[in-house]
Design a protein around this nucleic acid. Structure first.
Length: 219
DNA sequence: ACATTAAGTGATT
DNA sequence: AATCACTTAATGT
């Protein structure tokens, strides 16, 4: 076992020892490879074929959709301890990805070949549960996104978006522009500016150029 | 000092 | 809630 494996094992044991059995963790170390991805880098694009699925150890991945005109909308986020089971189904059928994934922070992830992901489903109960759980969670988040799109006013959507950002970055100070938010919510910059101004005046946030500080959390 | 990028605003749809 | 057209403010070179 080289230095890298030892590091990896430490991280895995730390995050997964109460979910996975030791043999599974050993297997992950054997076949998976650790990869760091810089903030802002593209992990997967629409149309890509996938051969490995990532187990996120650190950072956040934003999963989004894109239409022909290049318009985007954020669907959900993968955090440490998450995997994208959706991409697993994609791998197995050798279908192209229908999503885009971008690193929202510096990422560390173990990439596991699909065949193994498949094997382990029958071999390890914990792994099976992990994957099914991931599927379930992703579904819940998607339904949540649909709800937002269909039923929520822009102000609520922004509020929810900001709260979520605070949660995943563990920081009330967000470095973000109105344009960024508009893109993620598939709205226009002007609309976001107006609503943020209102939230600012209401004392719920404090916003300056490139920065939004959330002052109170969603109850 | 100047150019570039982000944010604010009235009017219109 | 979106778009246009324009202003003002902050920041980089």
């Amino acid at each position: 076992m080289n230095y890298h494996d030892a590091e990896l094992k430490k991280i895995l044991l730390n995050q997964y020892s109460n979910i996975f059995e030791d043999e599974l963790i050993d297997e992950i170390i054997k076949v998976g490879y650790l990869k760091s991805i810089k903030n802002g880098e593209l992990l997967i694009d629409v149309g890509d074929y996938l051969t490995h699925i990532p187990l996120i150890l650190k950072g956040v991945v934003k999963i989004m959709r894109q239409d022909k005109a290049g318009e985007e909308i954020a669907l959900y986020y993968l955090e440490a301890g998450d995997t994208c089971a959706i991409s697993f189904a994609n791998c197995l059928n050798r279908k192209q990805s229908i999503f885009m994934g971008i690193a929202e922070a510096d990422i560390e992830a173990v990439f596991i070949p699909v065949e193994k992901v498949d094997d382990w489903l029958v071999k390890y109960k914990t792994w099976r549960h992990f994957i099914i759980d991931s599927y379930h969670f992703r579904l819940i988040e998607m339904v949540d996104s649909i709800d937002s799109l269909a039923f929520m006013r822009m102000e609520e959507r922004i509020w929810k978006y900001l709260s979520h950002k605070v949660k995943i970055s563990n920081d009330f100070d967000l470095e973000i522009t109105h344009q960024d938010i508009a893109q993620d919510l598939n709205s226009s910059r002007v609309v976001i500016t107006r609503i943020l101004k209102k939230l600012h005046d209401d004392g719920k946030i404090y916003s300056t150029r490139n920065r939004v500080k959330v002052l109170e959390l969603l109850s």
